[in-house]
Simulated assay, not measured.
Amino acid sequence: MKEKATGKSYAKIIWFGEHSVVYGKPAIAIPIYSVDVTATIRRINAGQNIHCRYFDGPVDQMAENLRGIKTLIDHLTNLLGAKDVAFDLTIESKLPSERGMGSSAATAIAVIRAFFAFFEVSLTRDMLLKLAEIEEKITHGNPSGLDSATASSSMPIWFIKNEINEQIDFNLPTSSLVIADSGIKGKTSEAVSLVHSNLVDQPEMADPLIQQLGTIAETARQALAEADDETLGKLMTQSQQNLAQLGVSNHTLDTFCQVACQNHALGAKLTGSGLGGCVIALAKNQADAQQISTALRKAGATQTWIQSFKNYQFSTGEAHDNLVQ
């Protein structure tokens, strides 16, 4: 056992495939290195305490809104034979909650990595994702697994619900993604219900839009491998049009997309469930990214982040989890 150990994870952004992924279509999601969660465990003399933005005190006194992470910690201490080990767990997160960036999954991934590093136990990626499900099932009921897969990855994820969850080839060495927080909480259940209602009540309108979103994701995978950022931008804008027709955009998100494209974005769209949350815009270079970011802040974005792709890992085959210290 170490005196101190740290685990890290990242925000996730769905690049392509929102809502259509619910209906068996592929989605592409990416980790955002600039928006991370760090969990640090230190050995202490007595007690088991947690410090985070929502709670500061003994683990066994955590409130109901943190039941997912409490249950995960209880499971980890049992699994690692650490029920009587005294520790301080500090969670520092740059992720805003309820913005479609996978905050709960990222927290779970960071905590799991920290515990395994603390107790010096090896951790495979499969085990990591299974453990993260403990928290995610409590927080989200029936999670797809996409959030955890992306928060724990160093590469984009190609995801088809209950079928495929794999890291994919990726090559965009000069482009950047700008993420803008609308300041409006996402409304996942409401948005998912709205799309479902449209499919039931207006299938002639909604079905083709869902099919097109799936096709867009497939085309985007090829464009990613070929470093075709112009095509990716066009696909993003097409996705936004489809999502708006499905009713999950709003005036703020539409405006942010327009502002981004007026400031040299190759394309822009909402990310996640919609009705709030974030917008993403693709920039050809760092200078354009800075201009887009500034324009979005002037338009009302509460936060923006710029993710350069030049440091992304392009090699698949990651068998063991390695984002621990």
Rank of each mutant, 00 (worst) to 15 (best):
residue 282 L to M: 00
residue 290 Q to V: 14
residue 243 L to A: 13
residue 78 N to I: 07
residue 145 G to L: 10
residue 291 Q to R: 15
residue 184 I to Q: 07
residue 8 K to E: 13
residue 325 Q to I: 10
residue 321 D to S: 10
residue 45 N to F: 06
residue 305 W to N: 02
residue 228 D to F: 07
residue 325 Q to L: 11
residue 8 K to V: 15
residue 30 I to D: 09
residue 114 A to D: 03
residue 135 E to A: 13
residue 125 R to Y: 14
residue 59 V to S: 00
residue 64 E to F: 10
residue 90 T to P: 03
residue 196 H to P: 00
residue 309 F to Q: 05
residue 11 A to T: 12
residue 120 E to V: 13
residue 69 I to G: 01
residue 295 A to R: 11
residue 14 I to C: 14
residue 26 P to S: 14
residue 55 F to S: 00
residue 70 K to L: 03
residue 81 G to S: 05
residue 11 A to P: 13
residue 168 I to L: 13
residue 148 S to G: 12
residue 261 C to R: 08
residue 45 N to G: 03
residue 260 A to E: 09
residue 201 D to I: 14
residue 270 L to I: 11
residue 53 R to V: 06
residue 123 L to D: 13
residue 231 T to E: 09
residue 156 P to L: 02
residue 115 F to E: 10
residue 297 R to T: 12
residue 324 V to Y: 06
residue 167 Q to M: 12
residue 62 M to Y: 08
residue 51 H to R: 11
residue 266 L to W: 13
residue 102 G to D: 02
residue 239 S to W: 09
residue 190 E to T: 03
residue 127 M to D: 11
residue 297 R to Q: 15
residue 268 A to L: 00
residue 36 D to A: 13
residue 229 D to M: 05
residue 163 E to N: 03
residue 127 M to Y: 09
residue 218 E to C: 08
residue 166 E to D: 10
residue 219 T to Y: 06
residue 157 I to L: 05
residue 293 S to M: 08
residue 195 V to F: 13
residue 286 Q to N: 09
residue 156 P to D: 00
residue 308 S to T: 12
residue 264 H to W: 02
residue 259 V to N: 04
residue 56 D to T: 12
residue 281 A to R: 07
residue 297 R to F: 06
residue 97 S to A: 12
residue 173 P to D: 02
